[in-house]
Design a binder for these strands. Structure first.
Lengths: 211, 211, 211, 211
DNA sequence: AATGAATGAGGATTCATTCAT
DNA sequence: AATGAATGAATCCTCATTCAT
């Protein structure tokens, strides 16, 4: 409550930012464990140390809070993720796969949250879910572009299919890891996945150029 | 709903088993939409017509109810599912894949519930989650056996990997369909998946027999 | 409900009696621990193994059950308790005190229950409480008679006072034991109590014969 | 229900402390009548006018509320109570006894509650009970100090016994009054009790100094 | 930029009791 | 002589949210 002189207004702003950040941290952690309904404002308040009413100063409601959680987490993640642009096609695919495998293993929390939001079907769709789907769609487009570049002969429909299959494999392997724990060798499985994708792209390119 | 004239047996003594089934139906439907926390006893009560307290006659608590939902749904599903035993290996794999694709498309509700339970990480693990994991494990073992029979040269570790990848793909494609809706051609994608699995099994068998 | 001749109905009767007894045992134990409100039919049912509805076959309602608990427990206890009729007055008083001390130490459950019922004040007085008060009153009268016989010179009012004080001391020492546990030497304290009663009776007789 | 003229601060922001006090008043009254289990949050809410959820703003749970009731009531009482320090030993004891008799007669509610809590034996000991026992222990120590000062020749064990007996008598007489109503002359009985304590202290001092 | 206090709706679960069998 | 099933009211407590300060 002290800390005067000089850059004062900055400090104030910084305090507000900091509180916001603390709230988002707490909300991310809880939401990743228990999903949308399981994330109560009370629990977030307890975990971040700020009163519940303060959460409502920063976010209009629970939905807004969860949307912000997704926005921040996935935004960061997406920004960091780029399709590798050097090496042979096979190497680049393997590189992308390894990169994703690492990301999944490193910060599983918001992936888990995203998948949970994606699976839930409630009467009024939460903004958080819409936001997750949008971010996911961006990732999908980046992937399609990467695949197109890698396999120029691939038709639009087939490029979409390969990208969809790529993401599906990643999601499925993530779930396998979540459920199976240490008995699942994520690295090895992602290598298989990369190989499968490569073969798939090659085969489909063949089909497309046959026509 | 009819039952006119005569003394009308007052609908009491409703057979018990029937009530239990009504409750399970309602709970399955709701849980598949909103997950564990989102399934409130009140909502189940409203949907099945029995008072909340009656639900507690049939199930000890919410956790017990949800576990029973999983048990019944997945039990039925698992019992029906068999690894195809005729045709060439490729046909059999494709058959299994098609069978699963159809099952996912037909009754997505309890798959969605299962995946949601699998993803959740709450302090005290619900029995429902444990039950889902157990059923899933049974499916895994059936799959491993089928794969071993198909590709006798495969090492144990590799057979497990192929089975894991097979399930992961199914889960991931299910999610893709859930999120992407009609823009996702599940049948085609499962064909790709089957093909990928076949190639994977062949390649890994080669590695194993090289040693 | 009958009691007709022959051997057979006896068996039936015995079964019913046995169930009733099992219920009363369970109810006594629970009620002694948690008082009137704390004794739920459900808990009694679980403890005795009979379904709740069976309890209602034997007892009209919860109040009736608790009244029966008091009746059985205190009835037995009271029947066993007699004012000693041999020895010097001091010895007889000491004997009575020792007898009571032992009874309190041996079966504290229903004493505790009785005191709890005695202390509670609820809008509609439970039959159980009335029954406890009645049994207690019988004990009081036995005591007054004993004291009058012991100290014939005592006025009616003073005899009542001594008896009241005798019971109050017993109740209070019981509570001290319940709360203080092993740090309370009940035997020694009851000896002090007996001695105090003796002195009190002697002094009050002096006052009465002075007039 | 009206809302005429002026601004009228809408009764909100009701000061907190005041609300807390209102809740405690209501809870004290109800708990003294019906004990721990008989005190429902709903009843307290109705009596104090605040919604049940507001009670949970001020107290973490029912147990916390009841513990606060004990703390406040007994705390006040204990603070007010002092062992008399003038007059002959007999007078001082009689003074103390009269003081206690008056306190019991004046505000029997929380004594009754305390004794009920003391008697109850539930699986998880309520904080309220622990708090009552602690306060009671403080009173015990004050009493022992007073008695030691009054009868310096008394051994430690005997001083404890006299104090225990003093409190036991008070408790027992309180119960007698509660059950017997107006037919019990509490003042006269406490005089007898004081006298008995005096004689007891004298006799035990004799025993102790004999050795 | 925050927060103490409040609040009505709803959360899971238990209550005493009933009734058809 | 019993009991499986049902039920409405009540239990404790958490929910998301608001509002005056």
């Amino acid at each position: 409550m002290a800390e005067d002189k000089a850059p004062k207004p900055r400090r104030k702003r910084a305090d507000g930012e900091l509180s916001r950040e603390r709230i988002l941290d707490a909300a991310t952690e809880i939401a990743a464990e228990r999903g949308y309904e399981g994330t109560s404002i009370g629990a977030v308040s307890k975990k971040c140390g700020l009163p519940a009413s303060s959460i409502y100063w920063h976010f209009t409601d629970k939905d807004d809070l969860l949307a912000a959680v997704i926005e921040r987490s996935f935004g960061t993640w997406l920004a960091a993720w780029q399709f590798p642009d050097a090496g042979t096609p096979g190497e680049r695919l393997a590189g992308a796969a390894a990169q994703i495998a690492k990301a999944l293993a490193d910060s599983p929390d918001f992936i888990r949250l995203g998948l949970m939001l994606g699976l839930e079907r409630r009467p009024v769709e939460p903004r958080a879910r819409a936001m997750f789907i949008e971010v996911r769609d961006q990732a999908f487009r980046i992937l399609v572009d990467g695949i197109r570049e890698l396999a120029p002969g691939l038709s639009d429909g087939h490029a979409d299919q390969v990208a969809t299959y790529a993401i599906a494999g990643a999601d499925g392997l993530f779930i396998a890891k979540e459920i199976g724990g240490d008995s699942v060798d994520l690295i090895a499985l992602f290598e298989l996945h990369a190989r499968a994708l490569y073969d798939m792209a090659v085969r489909l390119t063949g089909e497309d150029t046959d026509d």
